[in-house]
């Protein structure tokens, strides 16, 4: 379980996170929803210790993040994390070199799944394919948790579908996923849980099936309700 407890973060005078708390379970897909600029990315960066926080605590399976945690949890940002001059094969070699959790077989499987060639240079990939490679580099790690920042934004519909397929496949099974989005439509049926964030605080945390079952509401209905009140 990933526990975010009362995290605050200021950029200069601007308080981006004002005491954010939520949990994300292993084996579930948790979705951070909020309009752009409410701090979703900052939360993920904070979980991965890629940005200092002003106060609060973050636990991964009960302990704080250390260097070894990067073999257990990985982050897929919305830009590719490999130098542009690398070929996909070079990126694979780099990952294999540094991560014990790198699963070369899975990487190759994913390459095929996404219909990509190992010899392609990262700088020459289309936007959609760049997103797929980025996704692939994270998914091919045998980790317990994935954090994905806006995996669907700014890419073509077919790439979106292919990436969405990942969520229902064995690649994700039994692992914990935190995903951010500002547009729920694509993934409404893929997620377990929603953490609704606005203005640096968590407005609501709920399981989508529970809300449908008990209140007969869609995720959008809940969003509208919360924002309008």
């Amino acid at each position: 379980m990933i526990e975010v407890k009362n995290v605050t973060k200021k950029f200069g005078r601007k308080e981006v996170l004002k005491g954010v708390s939520f949990t994300a379970e292993k084996g579930q897909i948790t979705c951070l929803i909020g309009i752009n600029g409410v701090g979703k990315t900052t939360i993920m960066q904070a979980i991965m210790s890629l940005i200092p926080i002003n106060s609060g605590e973050i636990f991964i399976d009960g302990s704080k993040l250390t260097k070894d945690s990067y073999e257990k949890i990985t982050f897929i940002p919305d830009t590719i994390t490999m130098p542009p001059q690398m070929r996909i094969a070079d990126a694979f070699a780099f990952m294999a070199d540094f991560y014990q959790s790198w699963n070369q077989k899975r990487a190759e499987e994913l390459l095929e799944f996404f219909k990509l060639e190992e010899t392609e240079r990262i700088s020459e990939l289309s936007k959609g394919n760049t997103a797929k490679v980025n996704m692939l580099l994270g998914l091919a790690l045998d980790v317990d948790y994935f954090l994905m920042d806006e995996p669907f934004s700014g890419i073509d519909i077919f790439s979106r579908e292919e990436i969405a397929n990942v969520f229902t496949s064995h690649l994700i099974e039994d692992r914990g996923v935190i995903i951010t989005t500002h547009e729920i439509n694509d993934i409404e049926h893929l997620i377990d849980k929603v953490v609704l964030i606005d203005n640096g605080v968590v407005l609501k945390e709920f399981y989508v099936e529970e809300v449908r079952e008990n209140e007969g509401k869609s995720v959008i209905d809940v969003l509208r309700e919360v924002y309008e009140s």
Partner: peptide, 17 residues
């Protein structure tokens, strides 16, 4: 620099920074 933020990868390597 640039759109390819390699620093993410480097900081997330399972080794002392």
């Amino acid at each position: 620099l640039g759109k390819n933020s390699f620093i993410y990868r480097l900081l997330m390597l399972p080794t002392a920074r």
